[in-house]
Design a protein around this nucleic acid. Structure first.
Lengths: 161, 161
DNA sequence: GCTACAGTACTCGGATAGATCATGTCCGAGTGGCCAAGG
DNA sequence: CCTTGGCCACTCGGACATGATCTATCCGAGTACTGTAGC
Protein backbone atom coordinates (compact mmCIF):
# COMPACT_ATOMS: atom_id res chain seq x y z
CA UNK A 1 0.00 0.00 0.00
CA UNK A 2 1.95 2.93 -1.30
CA UNK A 3 0.56 6.39 -1.81
CA UNK A 4 1.42 8.19 -5.00
CA UNK A 5 4.38 10.51 -4.94
CA UNK A 6 2.14 13.11 -6.53
CA UNK A 7 0.25 13.66 -3.29
CA UNK A 8 3.24 15.29 -1.66
CA UNK A 9 3.82 17.45 -4.73
CA UNK A 10 0.17 18.43 -4.94
CA UNK A 11 -0.10 19.55 -1.33
CA UNK A 12 3.10 21.59 -1.43
CA UNK A 13 2.09 23.16 -4.73
CA UNK A 14 -1.36 24.06 -3.43
CA UNK A 15 0.30 25.56 -0.38
CA UNK A 16 2.48 27.72 -2.58
CA UNK A 17 -0.59 28.84 -4.52
CA UNK A 18 -2.18 30.12 -1.30
CA UNK A 19 0.53 32.77 -1.09
CA UNK A 20 -0.03 34.24 -4.53
CA UNK A 21 -2.13 37.28 -5.35
CA UNK A 22 -5.78 36.29 -5.74
CA UNK A 23 -6.54 35.45 -9.35
CA UNK A 24 -2.89 35.08 -10.29
CA UNK A 25 -2.18 31.93 -12.26
CA UNK A 26 1.11 30.00 -12.28
CA UNK A 27 2.19 27.61 -15.05
CA UNK A 28 2.86 24.01 -14.11
CA UNK A 29 6.44 24.34 -15.29
CA UNK A 30 7.08 27.11 -12.80
CA UNK A 31 5.48 25.25 -9.93
CA UNK A 32 7.64 22.27 -10.83
CA UNK A 33 10.81 24.33 -10.95
CA UNK A 34 10.25 25.46 -7.37
CA UNK A 35 10.98 21.93 -6.12
CA UNK A 36 12.90 20.72 -9.19
CA UNK A 37 10.16 18.29 -10.11
CA UNK A 38 9.49 16.81 -13.58
CA UNK A 39 7.23 19.47 -15.09
CA UNK A 40 5.12 17.29 -17.37
CA UNK A 41 4.33 14.85 -14.63
CA UNK A 42 3.42 17.51 -12.11
CA UNK A 43 1.19 18.94 -14.80
CA UNK A 44 -0.63 15.63 -14.85
CA UNK A 45 -1.28 15.81 -11.12
CA UNK A 46 -2.44 19.41 -11.36
CA UNK A 47 -4.89 18.35 -14.05
CA UNK A 48 -6.38 15.88 -11.60
CA UNK A 49 -6.73 18.66 -9.04
CA UNK A 50 -8.43 20.80 -11.68
CA UNK A 51 -10.85 18.00 -12.56
CA UNK A 52 -11.66 17.71 -8.85
CA UNK A 53 -12.51 21.39 -8.70
CA UNK A 54 -9.63 22.25 -6.40
CA UNK A 55 -7.66 24.21 -8.98
CA UNK A 56 -8.79 26.28 -11.93
CA UNK A 57 -6.72 26.27 -15.11
CA UNK A 58 -6.28 28.80 -17.91
CA UNK A 59 -4.43 28.00 -21.13
CA UNK A 60 -2.32 30.33 -23.17
CA UNK A 61 0.18 33.02 -22.19
CA UNK A 62 -0.25 34.38 -18.67
CA UNK A 63 -2.17 31.19 -18.03
CA UNK A 64 -1.58 28.42 -15.52
CA UNK A 65 -3.20 27.12 -12.34
CA UNK A 66 -4.74 28.90 -9.40
CA UNK A 67 -6.87 27.81 -6.46
CA UNK A 68 -10.48 27.36 -7.49
CA UNK A 69 -11.84 28.13 -4.03
CA UNK A 70 -10.74 29.56 -0.72
CA UNK A 71 -8.00 27.71 1.19
CA UNK A 72 -10.47 27.43 4.08
CA UNK A 73 -12.62 25.21 1.87
CA UNK A 74 -9.88 22.85 0.70
CA UNK A 75 -8.97 19.94 2.95
CA UNK A 76 -6.08 17.52 2.71
CA UNK A 77 -8.68 14.84 2.14
CA UNK A 78 -9.83 16.68 -0.98
CA UNK A 79 -6.31 16.76 -2.37
CA UNK A 80 -5.57 13.14 -1.53
CA UNK A 81 -8.87 11.99 -3.03
CA UNK A 82 -8.21 13.99 -6.18
CA UNK A 83 -4.84 12.31 -6.75
CA UNK A 84 -5.42 8.84 -5.37
CA UNK A 85 -9.03 8.44 -6.39
CA UNK A 86 -12.09 8.19 -4.19
CA UNK A 87 -12.12 4.44 -3.59
CA UNK A 88 -10.96 3.05 -0.26
CA UNK A 89 -7.59 1.46 0.33
CA UNK A 90 -9.10 -1.68 1.79
CA UNK A 91 -11.36 -3.27 -0.78
CA UNK A 92 -13.72 -5.83 0.69
CA UNK A 93 -14.03 -8.48 -2.01
CA UNK A 94 -16.58 -10.33 0.09
CA UNK A 95 -14.66 -13.55 0.48
CA UNK A 96 -17.37 -14.65 2.89
CA UNK A 97 -19.66 -15.03 -0.09
CA UNK A 98 -17.50 -17.87 -1.33
CA UNK A 99 -17.31 -19.54 2.04
CA UNK A 100 -19.71 -22.22 3.32
CA UNK A 101 -23.18 -21.13 4.43
CA UNK A 102 -26.03 -19.14 3.00
CA UNK A 103 -25.28 -15.92 1.13
CA UNK A 104 -28.43 -14.96 -0.73
CA UNK A 105 -28.89 -11.22 -0.86
CA UNK A 106 -26.37 -10.47 1.87
CA UNK A 107 -24.17 -7.38 1.46
CA UNK A 108 -20.96 -8.53 3.09
CA UNK A 109 -19.34 -5.16 2.59
CA UNK A 110 -21.65 -3.94 5.31
CA UNK A 111 -22.24 -7.10 7.31
CA UNK A 112 -18.73 -8.60 7.49
CA UNK A 113 -17.11 -7.59 10.78
CA UNK A 114 -13.65 -7.65 9.26
CA UNK A 115 -14.77 -5.21 6.63
CA UNK A 116 -16.32 -3.04 9.31
CA UNK A 117 -13.13 -2.92 11.35
CA UNK A 118 -11.01 -2.03 8.37
CA UNK A 119 -13.52 0.56 7.30
CA UNK A 120 -13.59 2.12 10.75
CA UNK A 121 -9.82 2.50 10.74
CA UNK A 122 -9.83 4.06 7.33
CA UNK A 123 -12.60 6.40 8.42
CA UNK A 124 -10.40 7.64 11.27
CA UNK A 125 -7.71 8.37 8.70
CA UNK A 126 -10.10 10.21 6.42
CA UNK A 127 -11.55 12.20 9.28
CA UNK A 128 -8.09 13.35 10.31
CA UNK A 129 -7.29 14.45 6.77
CA UNK A 130 -10.64 16.16 6.36
CA UNK A 131 -9.96 18.13 9.52
CA UNK A 132 -6.90 19.79 8.05
CA UNK A 133 -7.57 22.65 5.65
CA UNK A 134 -5.11 24.31 3.37
CA UNK A 135 -5.72 27.52 5.28
CA UNK A 136 -4.82 25.87 8.58
CA UNK A 137 -1.65 24.46 7.12
CA UNK A 138 -0.74 27.80 5.59
CA UNK A 139 -1.24 29.58 8.92
CA UNK A 140 0.93 27.05 10.71
CA UNK A 141 3.73 27.56 8.23
CA UNK A 142 3.42 31.34 8.52
CA UNK A 143 3.61 31.16 12.31
CA UNK A 144 6.84 29.26 12.06
CA UNK A 145 8.31 31.23 9.14
CA UNK A 146 6.70 34.65 8.88
CA UNK A 147 8.81 35.46 5.85
CA UNK A 148 7.58 32.48 3.85
CA UNK A 149 4.66 34.20 2.09
CA UNK A 150 6.71 37.15 0.85
CA UNK A 151 9.64 34.96 -0.16
CA UNK A 152 7.47 32.53 -2.04
CA UNK A 153 5.59 35.28 -3.79
CA UNK A 154 8.87 36.92 -4.75
CA UNK A 155 10.26 33.66 -6.09
CA UNK A 156 7.28 33.13 -8.35
CA UNK A 157 7.34 36.77 -9.43
CA UNK A 158 10.98 36.55 -10.48
CA UNK A 159 11.53 35.74 -14.14
CA UNK A 160 14.27 33.15 -13.78
CA UNK A 161 15.31 30.38 -11.42
CA UNK B 1 -3.28 3.73 -2.96
CA UNK B 2 -4.64 0.25 -3.04
CA UNK B 3 -4.23 -2.27 -0.27
CA UNK B 4 -3.26 -5.80 -1.23
CA UNK B 5 -6.06 -8.27 -1.68
CA UNK B 6 -4.09 -10.60 0.58
CA UNK B 7 -4.93 -8.54 3.65
CA UNK B 8 -8.55 -9.58 3.53
CA UNK B 9 -7.59 -13.21 3.01
CA UNK B 10 -5.06 -13.09 5.82
CA UNK B 11 -7.47 -11.69 8.39
CA UNK B 12 -10.24 -14.13 7.56
CA UNK B 13 -7.81 -17.04 7.58
CA UNK B 14 -6.38 -16.01 10.93
CA UNK B 15 -9.90 -15.74 12.25
CA UNK B 16 -10.65 -19.27 11.12
CA UNK B 17 -7.48 -20.45 12.83
CA UNK B 18 -8.70 -19.08 16.16
CA UNK B 19 -11.47 -21.67 16.16
CA UNK B 20 -9.25 -24.68 15.76
CA UNK B 21 -8.00 -26.91 18.54
CA UNK B 22 -4.85 -25.44 20.10
CA UNK B 23 -1.77 -26.76 18.35
CA UNK B 24 -3.72 -28.05 15.36
CA UNK B 25 -2.15 -27.04 12.04
CA UNK B 26 -4.03 -26.49 8.77
CA UNK B 27 -2.42 -26.66 5.31
CA UNK B 28 -2.58 -23.55 3.16
CA UNK B 29 -4.52 -25.46 0.52
CA UNK B 30 -7.27 -26.23 2.98
CA UNK B 31 -7.48 -22.65 4.23
CA UNK B 32 -7.69 -21.53 0.61
CA UNK B 33 -10.45 -24.00 -0.21
CA UNK B 34 -12.61 -22.52 2.52
CA UNK B 35 -13.04 -19.31 0.51
CA UNK B 36 -12.14 -20.77 -2.91
CA UNK B 37 -8.93 -18.78 -3.07
CA UNK B 38 -5.85 -19.60 -5.19
CA UNK B 39 -3.94 -21.89 -2.85
CA UNK B 40 -0.40 -21.07 -3.92
CA UNK B 41 -0.95 -17.34 -3.59
CA UNK B 42 -2.59 -17.60 -0.20
CA UNK B 43 0.38 -19.72 0.80
CA UNK B 44 2.59 -16.77 -0.08
CA UNK B 45 0.61 -14.49 2.21
CA UNK B 46 0.69 -17.01 5.02
CA UNK B 47 4.45 -17.21 4.66
CA UNK B 48 4.60 -13.48 5.28
CA UNK B 49 2.50 -13.93 8.41
CA UNK B 50 4.87 -16.67 9.55
CA UNK B 51 7.91 -14.46 8.98
CA UNK B 52 6.20 -11.78 11.07
CA UNK B 53 5.76 -14.24 13.93
CA UNK B 54 1.98 -14.26 13.71
CA UNK B 55 1.70 -17.81 12.42
CA UNK B 56 3.87 -20.84 12.99
CA UNK B 57 4.41 -23.29 10.18
CA UNK B 58 5.23 -26.99 10.10
CA UNK B 59 6.18 -28.81 6.93
CA UNK B 60 5.40 -32.37 5.99
CA UNK B 61 2.29 -34.51 6.52
CA UNK B 62 -0.04 -33.30 9.27
CA UNK B 63 1.73 -29.96 8.88
CA UNK B 64 0.40 -26.53 8.00
CA UNK B 65 -0.13 -23.22 9.74
CA UNK B 66 -1.37 -22.35 13.20
CA UNK B 67 -1.42 -19.20 15.31
CA UNK B 68 1.97 -18.52 16.84
CA UNK B 69 0.54 -16.64 19.81
CA UNK B 70 -2.76 -16.01 21.56
CA UNK B 71 -5.48 -14.18 19.58
CA UNK B 72 -5.46 -11.57 22.34
CA UNK B 73 -1.92 -10.68 21.32
CA UNK B 74 -2.53 -10.34 17.59
CA UNK B 75 -3.89 -7.03 16.31
CA UNK B 76 -5.18 -6.15 12.88
CA UNK B 77 -2.24 -3.77 12.65
CA UNK B 78 0.11 -6.75 13.01
CA UNK B 79 -1.58 -8.58 10.15
CA UNK B 80 -1.70 -5.55 7.88
CA UNK B 81 1.93 -4.72 8.57
CA UNK B 82 2.95 -8.30 7.87
CA UNK B 83 1.31 -8.28 4.44
CA UNK B 84 1.76 -4.69 3.35
CA UNK B 85 5.13 -4.05 4.91
CA UNK B 86 6.01 -1.75 7.77
CA UNK B 87 6.63 1.42 5.77
CA UNK B 88 4.03 4.18 5.76
CA UNK B 89 1.63 4.83 2.92
CA UNK B 90 2.62 8.47 2.66
CA UNK B 91 6.32 8.68 1.89
CA UNK B 92 7.77 12.10 2.55
CA UNK B 93 10.42 12.51 -0.13
CA UNK B 94 11.43 15.83 1.37
CA UNK B 95 10.66 18.01 -1.61
CA UNK B 96 11.37 21.00 0.61
CA UNK B 97 15.04 20.07 0.43
CA UNK B 98 15.01 20.88 -3.27
CA UNK B 99 13.17 24.16 -2.81
CA UNK B 100 14.82 27.54 -2.28
CA UNK B 101 16.31 28.29 1.12
CA UNK B 102 18.76 26.66 3.48
CA UNK B 103 18.57 22.92 4.03
CA UNK B 104 21.79 21.85 5.73
CA UNK B 105 21.19 19.11 8.23
CA UNK B 106 17.43 19.56 8.39
CA UNK B 107 15.29 16.44 8.67
CA UNK B 108 12.23 17.45 6.70
CA UNK B 109 10.47 14.21 7.46
CA UNK B 110 10.07 15.54 10.97
CA UNK B 111 10.07 19.27 10.39
CA UNK B 112 7.81 19.61 7.32
CA UNK B 113 4.30 20.44 8.45
CA UNK B 114 2.77 18.67 5.48
CA UNK B 115 4.60 15.52 6.42
CA UNK B 116 3.44 15.93 10.02
CA UNK B 117 -0.20 16.26 9.01
CA UNK B 118 -0.09 13.22 6.79
CA UNK B 119 1.73 11.29 9.46
CA UNK B 120 -0.83 12.25 12.08
CA UNK B 121 -3.66 10.99 9.91
CA UNK B 122 -1.89 7.75 9.24
CA UNK B 123 -1.20 7.38 12.93
CA UNK B 124 -4.92 7.60 13.66
CA UNK B 125 -5.43 4.78 11.17
CA UNK B 126 -2.73 2.65 12.73
CA UNK B 127 -4.03 3.28 16.22
CA UNK B 128 -7.49 2.15 15.21
CA UNK B 129 -6.09 -1.05 13.69
CA UNK B 130 -3.86 -1.69 16.67
CA UNK B 131 -6.89 -1.44 18.95
CA UNK B 132 -8.59 -4.40 17.31
CA UNK B 133 -7.32 -7.80 18.35
CA UNK B 134 -8.06 -11.09 16.71
CA UNK B 135 -9.69 -12.18 19.95
CA UNK B 136 -12.02 -9.19 19.94
CA UNK B 137 -13.01 -9.85 16.38
CA UNK B 138 -13.55 -13.52 17.11
CA UNK B 139 -15.77 -12.72 20.08
CA UNK B 140 -17.85 -10.31 18.00
CA UNK B 141 -18.42 -12.95 15.37
CA UNK B 142 -19.34 -15.54 17.99
CA UNK B 143 -21.85 -13.18 19.56
CA UNK B 144 -23.55 -12.74 16.23
CA UNK B 145 -23.26 -16.38 15.10
CA UNK B 146 -22.79 -18.67 18.08
CA UNK B 147 -22.60 -21.67 15.82
CA UNK B 148 -19.66 -20.33 13.83
CA UNK B 149 -16.85 -21.90 15.88
CA UNK B 150 -18.31 -25.41 15.79
CA UNK B 151 -19.24 -25.17 12.13
CA UNK B 152 -15.83 -23.89 11.12
CA UNK B 153 -14.05 -26.52 13.17
CA UNK B 154 -16.25 -29.20 11.62
CA UNK B 155 -15.56 -27.94 8.11
CA UNK B 156 -11.81 -28.11 8.60
CA UNK B 157 -12.09 -31.50 10.26
CA UNK B 158 -14.03 -32.95 7.29
CA UNK B 159 -11.88 -34.71 4.74
CA UNK B 160 -13.38 -33.28 1.55
CA UNK B 161 -15.17 -30.18 0.16
C1' DG C 1 -2.22 58.22 -34.11
C1' DC C 2 -5.50 54.51 -34.06
C1' DT C 3 -7.37 50.10 -35.54
C1' DA C 4 -7.44 45.61 -37.49
C1' DC C 5 -5.15 41.50 -38.39
C1' DA C 6 -1.96 37.93 -38.86
C1' DG C 7 1.80 35.58 -36.75
C1' DT C 8 3.89 33.68 -32.69
C1' DA C 9 4.90 32.04 -28.31
C1' DC C 10 2.90 30.01 -24.49
C1' DT C 11 -0.24 26.93 -21.76
C1' DC C 12 -3.10 23.13 -20.72
C1' DG C 13 -4.88 18.53 -21.90
C1' DG C 14 -4.84 14.07 -23.26
C1' DA C 15 -2.45 10.25 -25.70
C1' DT C 16 1.65 7.53 -25.54
C1' DA C 17 6.11 4.61 -23.58
C1' DG C 18 8.80 2.66 -19.55
C1' DA C 19 9.48 1.06 -14.58
C1' DT C 20 7.86 -0.85 -10.53
C1' DC C 21 4.94 -3.59 -7.78
C1' DA C 22 0.97 -6.71 -6.98
C1' DT C 23 -0.79 -11.08 -8.63
C1' DG C 24 -0.51 -15.79 -9.84
C1' DT C 25 2.09 -20.21 -10.70
C1' DC C 26 5.52 -23.72 -10.32
C1' DC C 27 8.96 -26.86 -8.52
C1' DG C 28 12.49 -28.32 -5.03
C1' DA C 29 13.95 -29.29 0.10
C1' DG C 30 12.59 -31.35 4.07
C1' DT C 31 9.65 -33.97 7.19
C1' DG C 32 6.56 -37.32 9.11
C1' DG C 33 3.94 -41.45 8.35
C1' DC C 34 3.42 -46.06 6.50
C1' DC C 35 4.66 -50.57 5.19
C1' DA C 36 7.38 -54.44 4.93
C1' DA C 37 11.11 -57.23 6.35
C1' DG C 38 13.82 -59.18 9.87
C1' DG C 39 14.62 -60.65 14.61
C1' DC D 1 4.65 -59.80 18.19
C1' DC D 2 8.02 -55.97 18.20
C1' DT D 3 11.57 -53.24 16.05
C1' DT D 4 13.93 -51.08 12.31
C1' DG D 5 14.80 -49.34 8.04
C1' DG D 6 13.48 -47.53 3.61
C1' DC D 7 9.99 -45.53 0.68
C1' DC D 8 6.46 -42.30 -0.27
C1' DA D 9 3.22 -38.67 0.10
C1' DC D 10 2.58 -34.27 1.90
C1' DT D 11 3.77 -29.42 3.17
C1' DC D 12 6.22 -25.24 3.25
C1' DG D 13 9.45 -22.07 1.05
C1' DG D 14 11.33 -19.55 -2.38
C1' DA D 15 12.21 -18.85 -7.48
C1' DC D 16 9.85 -17.76 -11.70
C1' DA D 17 6.02 -15.59 -15.26
C1' DT D 18 2.17 -12.27 -15.96
C1' DG D 19 -0.63 -8.20 -15.54
C1' DA D 20 -1.90 -3.83 -13.63
C1' DT D 21 -0.62 0.53 -11.87
C1' DC D 22 2.48 4.31 -11.03
C1' DT D 23 5.96 7.21 -13.23
C1' DA D 24 7.54 9.90 -16.94
C1' DT D 25 7.32 12.07 -21.57
C1' DC D 26 5.64 14.06 -25.82
C1' DC D 27 2.75 16.48 -29.05
C1' DG D 28 -1.61 18.82 -30.52
C1' DA D 29 -5.65 22.32 -29.61
C1' DG D 30 -6.54 26.68 -28.09
C1' DT D 31 -5.49 31.35 -26.33
C1' DA D 32 -3.48 35.88 -25.48
C1' DC D 33 0.03 38.87 -26.71
C1' DT D 34 2.87 41.50 -30.22
C1' DG D 35 4.23 43.66 -34.07
C1' DT D 36 2.96 45.50 -38.45
C1' DA D 37 0.30 47.29 -42.13
C1' DG D 38 -3.44 50.09 -43.51
C1' DC D 39 -6.64 54.00 -42.79
Amino acid sequence: MRMSEGVEWAIHSCLNLTWLEPGEAVPAARLAAFYELPAAYLNKQLQALARAGILASTPGPRGGFRLARRPEDITLMDVVAAIEGPEEAFRCEEVLRRGPGEHEGVDYRRRCLVSQSMRRAELAWRRELAGQTLAGLRDSVERRSPSAPAETRAWFAALRT
